[in-house]
Amino acid sequence: MSWLKSNRWALLALVVLAPAALVVALSAGWFDYVEQQNGRPIRAVAGQTVEYGGSQFSLLESYRVDADTDRGQAAGLRPGTTLVSATIGVTPGAEPPSCSVELTDASGERRWAEATFADADVTNADGTESYCSTDAEGPYRLQVFFVVPDDAAEAPELRFSRLDLLPDLVLFEL
């Protein structure tokens, strides 16, 4: 008992410092991990222009198509799915950028790649591109399509990123 009493301050320091050392040692890695998972988003809404990697991007238009509408049936949507389209205005900087576009649900936990022929029969509007053109000579419009379950179509966000700029990315609220 006398040993505990004579060393009480050292033991108390150990009780405090050992967890603190663990937190300090692991926190940097934890924050890196969270950032890697969620990215470091620049948020934007329709009409707002954001600069990303030296180029400018703005959300020009977005719409949704339900499977049980005429447009949905024409697009071959399966019941319970929704087609989401977004058109982005791109003003390339000195070097036209490549890009990756995904859709996330409102929670940001689920992500979808662009729709393929298996998901929907869609065609780009006249005057729009379907991918980020690395040889663009001026501003252009990028139109992308996604097919998601109905429960993800309420407040989706467009996740716009470049591999070499991650974890920085742009999130457009649709």
Binding site: R111, A113, D119, V148, D151, A152
Partner: peptide, 8 residues
Amino acid sequence: SWTLAAGL
């Protein structure tokens, strides 16, 4: 050869 999608 397919890409699986959440909820689809």
